[in-house]
Design a protein around this nucleic acid. Structure first.
Length: 586
RNA sequence: GCCCCGAUAGCUCAGUGGAUAGAGCAGUAGCCUUCUAAGCUAUUGGUCGGGGGUUCGAGUCCUCCUCGGGGCGCCA
């Protein structure tokens, strides 16, 4: 519809160029938008205002000239000039009615497009360290990333969803050591658990598995384990030095093979849990990319050598620094520590280089907002290596604060007491969690009201939208009971009977759906879709209350059933893009 | 101190440089012999945090300030 109007305007513009009103060089493609106020018609264009300078005419006068040469169209019922120089278009009712058979014909693919032209996009999201279960903070990134990926796919991109598994590094060593210490306690050793260790119950669970399946095979005396390890913070020492000492002891006492076994056990149990959790949340990936594989394949070393070879590294204090300030970062960053170990940043350079080398046209990283300071250095590294940093977009997702009973539901990773994504799903359900997480723009801090998400009332937007879908099915069931044929006649038959304001409003909202999907996808803004679905549900509920669908007049009934079938299709398609179910009964 | 994000109705939030700034909730007043009241109708409610600027036009862009959240490691 929009493109049809754009065509009309372009043709009129060409006429004016031919008439010498302004030159084709000053021509901007026409901007058509939906009007906010129905009094302004259905679509409006600011084309006359934009070109008034080039034409040396007042906007309204230029609009007059345009109207004079605007081609006729059966779809447009009125065109007028309004306000400072807008050209307003009102569509014929028949233009909207034509949409219904189109929606029914396209079914699940209505709203999808080929805008992306098959370009390859990688979306990396969640990528939480496998050192514990996902918590509600990860949930927002998961829901947001999944919907952005699905939206991009819906508009024709070839989407590759990826989870970067941080299965190397110190945090994983801390996890392995935590598991082992808990295991020692289960063996009967008495020890003070390190203040910097992972204290969650899941660590006990993993330790219990180890103990159950391997009895005392990994046991060492507590005195031996803590021998000459620097004191922990509560004992007046340093907690970092303490945990590092314990890691070293674990590696020494267990030896390579046994240490590796404990490490792998912890990693695998937690990673399986994360996979399962995300899958139950409706979040699935094409690839789980291992950080360790980057080190093992030599990709990290290769990346570092490449930077060193091109003169972007320098040595200071025994460490190797990347001169990221050359590319706009606020300070230089260490890539190889004094002790010879690579930093996390070094792996990430290799990882992002690998992303570009895999040939994605676009790479989207979705990170928590607390990582924002990290963006310049990653882009700097890509530039330093001759990569095209403009292909990388980093979307930062702000925190979600949970409220229960009007109070903040606090979480603290330190104590091991946090609300997990699994618990959230259990409490409010997958549908509500998915919907709520994407209701807000990602850069907006979010208040997540648990009570509202659980409530089964019209206050709760997800139920409101789902209820509209279920209600349509209730009507269809009712029709079946009355032995009315719910398979309406083919094509556009009887649609001219749809003349009520409620019906036209509903059709107009339906016609917006493809535009909403396109806009939500290109702006990476899933909330546009949640807002739209609420409006659509509202139009339907209003219609439902105002008119009976299963009327005696067979032609009218046929037309109305077609309209609500089209509505059902769009509700289902929209909810499906959000990863929210469309129940037939509630 | 520097960097990122935010500030719009009592609350939670929409608002691609366009027309008289919107929605939900809360409040107020109504609607169930009916296809699901998990719904609908009407109505109240605004110094778009503040000051400058850019232009035909600013909630939207620039700048300064105020207040909130987060980040500034040879952690990940």
């Amino acid at each position: 519809m929009k493109s049809h109007i754009a065509d009309l305007i372009s043709k009129a513009m060409d006429e004016l160029v031919a008439a010498g009103v302004f030159s084709s060089a000053d021509c901007h493609p026409p901007v058509i938008e939906r009007t906010r106020d129905p009094a302004h018609g259905d679509f409006a264009s600011n084309v006359a205002m934009v070109h008034s300078k080039a034409a040396k005419m007042r906007p309204r006068d230029l609009a007059e000239r345009l109207l004079a040469v605007l081609p006729d169209s059966g779809l447009v019922s009125a065109v007028e000039i309004a306000g400072p120089g807008f050209i307003n278009f009102r569509l014929a009712d028949s233009a909207y009615r034509m949409l219904i058979p189109e929606v029914l014909k396209q079914g699940h693919s209505f709203g999808r497009s080929s805008l992306g032209a098959g370009k390859r996009v990688q979306v990396e999201f969640v990528s939480a360290n496998p050192t514990g279960p996902l918590h509600v903070g990860h949930g927002r990134g998961a829901a947001y990333g999944a919907v952005v990926a699905d939206l991009l796919e819906a508009v024709g991109y070839d989407v590759h969803r990826e989870y970067y598994v941080n299965d190397a590094g110190r945090q994983m060593d801390i996890l392995a050591t935590s598991v082992w210490l808990r295991y020692l306690e289960l063996c009967g050793e008495a020890l003070d658990f390190p203040s910097n260790g992972y204290r969650g119950d899941y660590v006990w669970d993993i330790a219990a598995t180890l103990h159950r399946e391997h009895a005392d095979a990994y046991r060492h005396m507590a005195e031996e384990v803590f021998d000459r390890v620097p004191l922990d913070e509560p004992a007046g020492g340093d907690k970092e030095a303490h945990i590092d000492g314990l890691i070293a002891q674990a590696k020494k006492l267990l030896g390579d093979n046994r240490y590796r076994f404990v490490f792998e056990l912890g990693l695998n149990v937690i990673l399986d849990d994360i996979r399962d959790d995300l899958s139950l949340f409706g979040v699935d990936y094409q690839e789980w990319y291992s950080e360790r594989s980057l080190a093992e394949s030599g990709a990290v070393n290769k990346a570092i050598e490449r930077l060193r070879g091109s003169g972007h590294l320098y040595e200071r204090g025994g460490a190797w620094w990347f001169r990221s300030t050359d590319f706009g970062d606020e300070k230089d960053r260490v890539v190889v520590r004094e002790n010879g170990q690579m930093t996390y940043f070094a792996s990430d350079i290799a990882y992002h280089m690998d992303k570009l080398e895999r040939g994605f046209d676009r790479v989207i990283d979705i990170w928590g907002a607390d990582h924002h300071g990290y963006v310049p250095r990653v882009k700097a590294a890509l530039q330093a290596m001759g990569g095209d940093a403009s292909r990388l977009d980093v979307l930062l997702v702000q925190f979600a604060i949970l409220y229960r009973g009007g109070e903040k539901a606090q979480m603290s990773t330190r104590s091991g007491e946090f609300i997990t994504l699994r618990e959230l799903r259990k409490e409010v359900g997958r549908d509500a969690a998915r919907f709520f997480y994407v209701m807000r723009k990602c850069e907006q801090h979010m208040d997540f009201d648990l009570d509202l998400a659980k409530s089964q009332s019209s206050d709760n937007p997800v139920y409101y939208v789902q209820y509209a879908h279920a209600r349509i099915h209730a009507v269809l069931r009712q029709a079946a009971d009355k032995l009315i044929d719910v398979q309406p006649s083919e094509g556009a038959t009887h649609l001219e009977r749809l003349v009520e304001t409620h019906e036209l409003d509903l059709m107009k909202t339906l016609s917006r759906y493809p535009e909403v999907v396109e806009s939500a996808a290109t702006n990476e803004e899933p909330h546009q879709l949640t807002h739209y679905l609420r409006e659509l549900a509202n139009d339907f509920h209003t219609y439902y209350n105002a008119h009976q669908f299963l009327v005696g007049d067979a032609a009218l009934r046929d037309a109305r059933i077609k309209l609500i079938l089209a509505t059902r299709e769009v509700l289902r398609n929209g909810l499906n893009l959000l990863g929210v179910s469309a129940p037939e009964q509630m």
